[in-house]
Computed example of a mutant assay.
Amino acid sequence: MANQTLAALPDTFTIYSLPVNAQIPSQVLNAPLYFIGKTHDELSIVVPQTVKLESDESDHNWRVLEILGPLDLSMVGIMAQIGSVLAAAKISIFVVSTFETDYFLIKQNNLKSAAIALENERYKVIL
């Protein structure tokens, strides 16, 4: 029996770091998919690479593996298990979550290796 199924989203994404007091640019809110995280120290925004932002730092060429859900909030250890598989394969990740599921961002050049590592651990990966 397989573990969860992950599907690669077609777009390539950029992770931006902005000052904590920066306004969220309107093009972010108009993007088809975006993630925003804000702490006391920074504002992080993940958007398709076609959306260009002025930022303190940015990191390009990320692909997204979505855990097909919805996942119940009471489920335990899903991110840890997938993260462990990818860590053992020496693949760096950036993780974001929504109410219904989790998303693993993986560098474009590591996507195939990530899929192989996950499939070897009985996850289904749709590229």
Rank of each mutant, 00 (worst) to 15 (best):
L111W: 00
A88S: 07
A7D: 05
I78G: 05
S26H: 10
A117P: 07
T98F: 00
I116T: 08
D11V: 13
I78H: 08
L43Q: 01
L73D: 15
I82G: 04
S58R: 03
I15K: 05
I116G: 09
N109M: 08
E100I: 13
T5K: 14
A115T: 08
I116C: 12
A88W: 06
M75G: 00
T14L: 10
I78N: 00
G37K: 09
I82K: 01
Q23I: 03
A114F: 10
A117N: 03
T14I: 03
A22K: 01
L71C: 02
W62L: 02
Q81M: 08
F104D: 01
A2L: 15
A115E: 10
P48Y: 05
N30L: 14
S92M: 06
E121N: 06
W62V: 09
S92K: 13
L111Y: 05
I93Q: 12
S26V: 15
L9A: 14
L33N: 07
P48L: 11
V64W: 12
K90V: 14
V51D: 10
H40M: 09
Q81N: 11
Q108S: 12
T5M: 02
I67M: 15
Q27R: 05
S55I: 12
D102G: 14
W62D: 13
T98S: 05
E100N: 14
Q4H: 11
K38W: 02
N21I: 10
I67V: 13
P48R: 06
K90T: 15
A117K: 08
Q81E: 12
I126H: 04
S55L: 13
N110A: 01
N3V: 06
S97P: 04
S55R: 06
L6Q: 01
I36G: 04
A88T: 08
V46K: 01
P25F: 02
R122F: 09
V96P: 00
A31K: 09
S44N: 15
I91T: 04
V51Q: 07
S26Q: 09
S55Y: 03
K90H: 11
A8M: 13
I82F: 03
Y34N: 10
Q108C: 14
F99D: 13
A88Y: 11
P32H: 07
I24Y: 00
K38T: 12
P10G: 13
K107C: 08
S74R: 02
T14Q: 00
V95G: 02
K112D: 08
I78L: 03
L18N: 11
L118A: 04
N109L: 11
G37W: 08
D59M: 05
M1E: 04
L53V: 11
A115S: 04
V47F: 11
G69Q: 00
A80D: 07
L105E: 03
G37E: 07
D102L: 10
